[in-house]
Design a protein around this nucleic acid. Structure first.
Lengths: 175, 175
DNA sequence: TATCTTTGCAAGTGATTACTCACTATTTAT
DNA sequence: ATAAATAGTGAGTAATCACTTGCAAAGATA
């Protein structure tokens, strides 16, 4: 990975997250990264390839993020970490940018990465079962849906107070 | 409103909802509507004006949809109608298309229409207060966030089972 | 040092973009 | 009936799009 290659990736992440994929031209990415436009195609083949490279980098990020939750044995901790994950993202500048892109791409391509969420869903189902909830599977689904809703607000609603709601949520789950 | 004008609006709604605003060219809209491209600019000034016309039409839809909930006096009915609103949208073909566009535009422009939700939020807060909930305002926020999460799944997750989750939700709220 | 591969840039390519303009057909108002 | 306003078209416009090509510079390998 050369220096200019990383500059391209960083510029593309920022512009794609800010303006969207199809509204960002390769010439803009090149100018923002301070390289020639042709270099993008040398390294990433085409515009789609550039996007894939960014998303792939993100999948690793998601895996390590989920791994910590999935490996947790204390059921209450599983739920707490799931909720706090969203809170953490909302406060980290670079993480927020990355996840905003993730959701933007979802809406642009209309593809929800269900398989990525599966291990987390399983861990949550397990946690709710241990805690004696009546419908653990649906409780798990609901919590993940709440996460999607929170993500929407964090990304789109200016000045959204995430902390108040996450702490309210934790109270609801007796954490 | 002439016949061709409506054809343009209908075509734009369908294409914007399917492919996104910036990925849909005015020439495609014209071809899909079966009119000349110039007519779009005659009636709507520019591409942005076409989008505004569609969104405006939608605001009326939203107002009438919310009005029924806001005017309800029975607190349980307020909550039930709020939940069922999502379910209804997910089953109606044309409504689904319209709301999908609404969310797509939100993510493309990064503007969340908070003011539109305010009356609904107020009605929900009132309902939760009447039912003796400890934090009515936060309960209202949470339910609206759940709605956003559900909307995300309905639009993006293929074969998402909305009915199971909405009925689960209603059970949670003792409805 | 000589050769081969990778990295990088400038200047292109045809296609498509949003939008305009000159013009005709159709309503509407007087 | 006639003039004015509106509806509609089709062929343009310059700018931008994703992408290619030819060639030079820099590293790596021998």
């Amino acid at each position: 990975m050369t220096e200019k290659q990383e500059k391209i990736l960083h510029a593309a992440l920022e512009l794609f997250a800010r303006d969207g994929f199809s509204s960002t031209s390769t010439s803009k990415v090149a100018a923002y990264a301070g390289v020639s436009e042709g270099l993008i195609f040398r390294h990433f083949k085409n515009k789609e390839g550039l996007l894939k490279a960014i998303l792939q980098e993100g999948e690793e990020k998601a895996r390590t993020l989920f791994a910590d939750i999935v490996l947790e044995s204390d059921p209450k901790e599983v739920i707490r970490k799931t909720i706090d994950m969203v809170l953490h993202i909302s406060t980290s500048r670079s993480d927020l940018e990355f996840w905003k892109l993730q959701y933007k791409i979802k809406w642009e391509t209309e593809k929800y990465g269900e398989h990525k969420m599966e291990p987390l869903h399983l861990a949550l189902t397990n946690a709710f079962t241990k805690l004696g909830y009546a419908s653990p599977d649906r409780e798990a689904s609901l919590l993940l849906i709440i996460n999607d809703g929170l993500a929407t607000r964090i990304a789109l609603q200016q000045g959204f107070d995430c902390e108040t709601l996450t702490s309210f949520l934790k109270k609801k789950y007796n954490i």
